[in-house]
Structures are given as structure tokens and as C-alpha cells.
Design a protein around this nucleic acid. Structure first.
Lengths: 212, 212
DNA sequence: ATTTGGTTTGACTAAGTGGTCAAAGTATAC
DNA sequence: GTATACTTTGACCACTTAGTCAAACCAAAT
């Protein structure tokens, strides 16, 4: 009766062997839905069509498995995010790229953002580690932002504000989907329509707000 | 070694007797930090300075206790939110009031918003129930919004978009504090400074973006 | 055919886990 | 004092949980 959770890396790309990937994918699904503390090794084994012992054989402990899932979840989100930072051109394109990468991530893996938020809520100290997986990102943002401000494309702002504003507008609605929908009395179609338009809405919204 | 969690209703205002309030406050602290599935009845008892049996005596089961905490957490956030909807005057004041109520809530109970997000992530079906605790809110928002649009104070938008934008900008940074801070390389003082300025930033940001 | 390496499995354990219960405490009314 | 109602407690239970382990399995190499 549970809603399906999309899985990363369905095509086997890495050094993991097949069974290991199956287990990791299963763990991914279970952890994303229930969080680390809510997930059960037995359920992961069932989901992977194997036994609990096998899960332990490959990942030794729940903690290590949780780490592997968390790390992979972050890497997947970062790949898209990072790529959209390398786009040249007007600042508007950068904004649109960042927003689009976040929203595409959410479309493909609906539970991912909420899962990461949950994990960071319970273990805030992991934020540092989490961010360190996007090398150069901070510097890249600072540079792009400074250039745009200097060129008069947007009014002055700090990297922290920029990140907060962009991430908020793109990620929050998905994390709080149920809440927002209930609050506004939106059915599923209404929500989909809104999300389909969200990239353009957020991009235009941000640029109007920050026009120099 | 755990960071302290602010407790609601420290003054005894309701029909609960004293021991019950102590237990509920303790449960509040533990649930907010660890989520329902991560919380342990024993820890709640310790935190309340009593025994597990007493906790069961007053609340029968973990589920009921979790419900009580969840409901009270929502009611506390709503009281502020709701009040700021009743303010008369220009739409700018409504926006500022809503943003301020959210940010004050976060300042006073840092883990509250993240906790609610976690719970809704794990049990999305509770969103309906959650929202039903703010009666009339939806209608109030629709009216205020329609009036503001008609008066030309802001450009046309939907209640869903309005709620998403306002809630995103005010709540997300707090939920993702660790992440944003690490991403922007902000120390504690830098973060505090940003949050102190956040109400005005978000209000002005939203109004610039939505100016008709 | 036998050895050798990795893999899979089911039975098992030890430490929690939420929850029960009857006995003991405690205040109040009679 | 004692009966009554509520509260508190520690011992206890059934069940779940992560994790172990040795035996069985299996494929490839010798």
C-alpha cells in the first residue's frame, strides 16, 4: 500500500556488484520513506528480495548502510546542482538553471529533499560533511554573484541570502507538499499544474525581487 | 550533550494536572529532536524525572503521546499565524505579519518546523488533519489576497502560490540552517545577523517581486 | 573430482522496545 | 483510624531489533 519511491542509478554504473546495487537501491527506497531511525533492516532485505544476513554481509551495519544511502542521495542532488552552476551567460540563466535543477531532482525523486532535511534535523553535525561533497560550489556561487552584482544585473545580496532564497523557493513546496495543498485546498491536478509552472514562476519571481 | 529544546506552555494554562504537563513537555522536547520513530519512552520518562510506567499511566501509549505532542506543536504555530491574518491595513502589513509570526515561532522553538516537516514526510495523510486545526484560515487568505489584487497592491497570484512563496521564504532557512550555513560558510554570528534581518528582507523581497 | 573463494541462508543471540500489572504509596474525606 | 480514590513504582512480559555464525551453496580453477 505504500507509494513507490524512485530509485537512483537503476543502471549499474559503478564498482558495486549486482547484489550490492540491488540492496543499496532497496535501502534507498526504505530510508527515503521512513528515515534512518524508522527504517528496518528486515524491510530492506524484503525489498531487495534477499535476507537480512546478506544485507549485513555487504554493508556490515545499519549505520554504514545509512551512510552509503545518505552519501549517494547527496551526490545525486549535487550532480545536477553543480552542473547548472557552470552555465555561462546572463545571471537570469544561472538562476533558472539552479531552480530547474532543484525542481527536476524533486520531480524524479520526490522523497529525496525531505529525507535529507530529516537526516540533517536529527544529526545537524552532518551538514558540514554534506556540503563538503560539492567541492568548489561555494566559491563558484560567490563569483557568479559578485559578477552579477557588479554588472548591475541584480541588487547587492550575500551568498547566504541568495542560497536561502533560491533553495527555499524551489525546495520547500515539495517538502511541504501535503501541507501547502491542504492549506490552499488544491487537488492533485492543481498541484501538478503549479509545479509545472514553478521553475518559471520562481525564476521570474526572484529576478523581479532582486532587480537592481 | 544534546542541545536544549524550548518547551511550550511552561506556564500551566490548561486542564492538565502538573505531572501530566511535565511529561508532555518532556515528550515535546524528545519528539521534536528525534521524531516519533526516533523517540524513546524511557528517555521521555528520564527527561520528565519520572518512570516509564507513569508516562503510560497518563498517555496510555506512545501513539497517543505522539498525537498529543503533534497537535500541541501545530496549535502553538497556528495561534501566531492566525493572529497575524486578522490585522487590518495595507497588504504589506499582512505579509510582514505572516512572515514575522513564522520567524518568531522559529526563534522561540527552533526544532518545531523541522519536526512538523518530518512527521508529515513520514505520514503525509496527516496533512489534512494538520491544516484542519486552523479553521477559517484558507478563506481568510483567499479574501485578503483577492482584495489586495483588486486594489492593485500586488499582481495576480493564487492562494497556493502565495502560501508557498511566503512559507518557503520564512520557514525553509530555519529548517535547513545547518546546510545553508555550511554552503555559505557562515558562522553563528553571521547566521544570527541574517535571521535578525530576515523578516524585513522577506517582506521587502516578496513585495518587490509581486508589485503590480 | 576436489579445492578454493566468495556468497547465501536460517537459526540464533543479546539488547532494546512498548506496554502491563499488582503492590505500595499518598492524600482526602469520613 | 480507616476507607476510598488517585498516583507512583519496579518487576515483568511479549515482541522487535540489529547483528552473529557456522553450515550450506555455488562457480571457477586446478
Amino acid at each position: 500500500m505504500e507509494a513507490p519511491v524512485a530509485t537512483l542509478f537503476d543502471a549499474n554504473t559503478s564498482t558495486y556488484d549486482e547484489a550490492e546495487v540491488h540492496i543499496l537501491n532497496a535501502a534507498h527506497r526504505v530510508f527515503l520513506r521512513h528515515g534512518t531511525s524508522g527504517a528496518r533492516m528486515q524491510q530492506i532485505a524484503n525489498e531487495a528480495g534477499t535476507t537480512k544476513s546478506s544485507v549485513h554481509y555487504y554493508f556490515r551495519s545499519k549505520d554504514r548502510l545509512a551512510d552509503a544511502v545518505f552519501k549517494r542521495a547527496l551526490e545525486e542532488s549535487y550532480a545536477r546542482f553543480r552542473a547548472s552552476l557552470d552555465v555561462e551567460g546572463p545571471f537570469e540563466d544561472t538562476v533558472r538553471g539552479l531552480v530547474a535543477s532543484n525542481l527536476e531532482m524533486i520531480r524524479d525523486y520526490p522523497y529525496l529533499a525531505g529525507y535529507i532535511m530529516m537526516e540533517l534535523h536529527q544529526q545537524p553535525e552532518r551538514a558540514q560533511q554534506a556540503v563538503s561533497l560539492i567541492p568548489g560550489c561555494r566559491h563558484e556561487i560567490e563569483t557568479k554573484l559578485a559578477t552579477a552584482i557588479e554588472r548591475g544585473e541584480i541588487r547587492p545580496t550575500t551568498p547566504a541570502e541568495f542560497s536561502s532564497d533560491i533553495l527555499s523557493l524551489s525546495l520547500f513546496p515539495a517538502i511541504a507538499e501535503g501541507f501547502v495543498r491542504a492549506l490552499a485546498g488544491l487537488d492533485e491536478d492543481g498541484w501538478k499544474a503549479m509545479m509545472a509552472d514553478r521553475t518559471e514562476h520562481v525564476t521570474a519571481f526572484y529576478l523581479r525581487a532582486m532587480r537592481a
